[in-house]
Structure formats: structure tokens, C-alpha cells
């Protein structure tokens, strides 16, 4: 038996919007720790890891570890039927081939339930080791989204370089080149407007902008984004989900042949 009640149902709606274009089908894993997902995109160059900790749910019952295969497009269709202020409850019985999403309006005057078919997904689970990164950049998520969008109108790839001067995003295409430099800036009114750069050593890596733009669909989940870079590791683009967990995107770099 599984029953997870999430008062801030809009979080789950936003999570689905953030990942449904990157991954088609995925197993949601439910354990005492929380509700999680790890899935690769179909070309095996990007990975999404989601964790919604059990403490973040108003009610969290998960009698045994359960993995539920879902088509994310179908799940998104169902969650779009929930109001932004609705409380969402996810329910499943042991051995069942369906999951139920229950939506309650804030004043309890409307209750809806949507039952979705589960699917068997043979997914590869990857072991992601803890790593020390050469550079970690924290910046406003809207700023990062803006830069990725702007650069993708010029080129297909972005070079992200971190030096003591700041973080530079560069691209080139048929019509020309573009460079955006963000310097460390901690003298701001609100902490989420700061750009903070922790650099152990300079690093420069190249990534496909198409994936970066896809990751920025998580922008509504968090005011800030944390970008971790090392020359011998995939980039990690992390959006913290307030008091609940995170959504992390990993992307393998492009390298010179």
C-alpha cells in the first residue's frame, strides 16, 4: 500500500513539466526515504534524478519499496487536471497495475480521482558516485534560462568556462558568435539574486544547448540553479525543490574528436 499526500500539489505538476520532454517513460521509486526517479534520455547523454523526501509530504505511507513505471506524457496529462492550489495524493495498492492521483481543492469542495495504467519499464539504473567538482556556480535560475535561450538562437553548443573572472557562456554559429559573462555578485537585495562562484581550478567544457534548454524547464521549481563542473565528469544542473529535495540533470560533454 502506498499513499503520499502532497499539500503543495503544484510542485508535482512542475516536476512533470520539467522532465516530460527529456524522458518518455520512467520508474518512480518509492521507499522510506522518499519518492524518487532516475532516468536517462533516449540518446543516453542526459540523465535526470529527482528526489522528493518523505518528510516533505503531509502523509507518507509506503509499506514496502515500490517501483512504478509511468509514461510521463500521460502522467502530465493527468496532473494538468489538478488545480495549482490542489492537494495531490498518489495512491497504489501492492501488486496493482494502476496508480491513482487524487486532487482535492483547498476548501475540500471538489475531489477528483484519476487512475492511470502503469507499465513495465526495463530501465538501466546508473551508479552516480559522489564527486568533488572543480567549479560550482550558483545563479538565478531565470538568468541561466535566459542565457541558454539567447545562445541557442545563435549556435547549437555552449562552452561554459569558469575562471576567477566569472563564468562565461559562449557559442558560435553561422551568423556569428556570442559570449555572456556573469561575475560573482553577492551584493544583492535577495539571496536568490546572487551569483556565487566557488572555483578550485579553472574549467571549460562544451555542451549541447538543446539539452541545456530542456533542463531550464525546471526553472519554476526554484529561484536558483547550481551548476557543477569538472573536466572529467558530466555537468550537474541542480534545482532545489523547497524543503523537499531536488531535481538534478546530468549531461555528458562534447569533446574534440
Amino acid at each position: 500500500m502506498l499513499e503520499l499526500r502532497l499539500v503543495q500539489g503544484s510542485l508535482l505538476k512542475k516536476v512533470l513539466e520539467a522532465i516530460k520532454d527529456l524522458v518518455n517513460d520512467a520508474n518512480f521509486d518509492c521507499s522510506a526515504t522518499g519518492f524518487s526517479l532516475q532516468a536517462m534520455d533516449s540518446s543516453h547523454v542526459a540523465l535526470v534524478a529527482l528526489l522528493l523526501r518523505s518528510e516533505g509530504f503531509e502523509h507518507y505511507r509506503c509499506d514496502r519499496n515500490l517501483s512504478m513505471g509511468m509514461n510521463l506524457n500521460n502522467m502530465s496529462k493527468m496532473l494538468k487536471c489538478a488545480g495549482n492550489d490542489d492537494i495531490i495524493t498518489i495512491k497504489a495498492d501492492d501488486g496493482s497495475d494502476t496508480v491513482t492521483f487524487m486532487f482535492e481543492s483547498p476548501n475540500q469542495d471538489k475531489i477528483a480521482d484519476f487512475e492511470m495504467k502503469l507499465m513495465d519499464i526495463d530501465s538501466e539504473h546508473l551508479g552516480i558516485p559522489e564527486a568533488e567538482y572543480q567549479a560550482i556556480v550558483r545563479m538565478p535560475s531565470s538568468e541561466f534560462a535566459r542565457i541558454c535561450k539567447d545562445l541557442s538562437s545563435i549556435g547549437d553548443t555552449v562552452v561554459i568556462s569558469v575562471t576567477k573572472e566569472g563564468v562565461k557562456f559562449s557559442t558560435r554559429g553561422d551568423i556569428g558568435t556570442a559570449n555572456v559573462v556573469c561575475r560573482q555578485n553577492t551584493t544583492v537585495d535577495k539571496p536568490e539574486e546572487a551569483t556565487v562562484i566557488e572555483m578550485q581550478e579553472p574549467v571549460s567544457l562544451t555542451f549541447a544547448l538543446r539539452y541545456m534548454n530542456s533542463f531550464t524547464k525546471a526553472t519554476p521549481l526554484s529561484g536558483t540553479v547550481t551548476i557543477s563542473l569538472s573536466s572529467d565528469l558530466p555537468i550537474v544542473v541542480e534545482y532545489k525543490i523547497a524543503e523537499m529535495g531536488y531535481i538534478r540533470f546530468y549531461l555528458a560533454p562534447k569533446i574534440e574528436d
Binding site: 538501466e124 558516485p129 569533446i255
Partner: peptide, 14 residues
């Protein structure tokens, strides 16, 4: 020429 690396180069498939 830039080539795209796969994640399996970095992460272990469990």
C-alpha cells in the same frame, strides 16, 4: 569536430 560523449563512460550501469 566535436563528438558527444555518452553517460555510460562516466557512470556505472547497476
Amino acid at each position: 569536430i566535436l563528438i558527444q560523449v555518452y553517460l555510460s563512460i562516466y557512470f556505472l550501469i547497476l
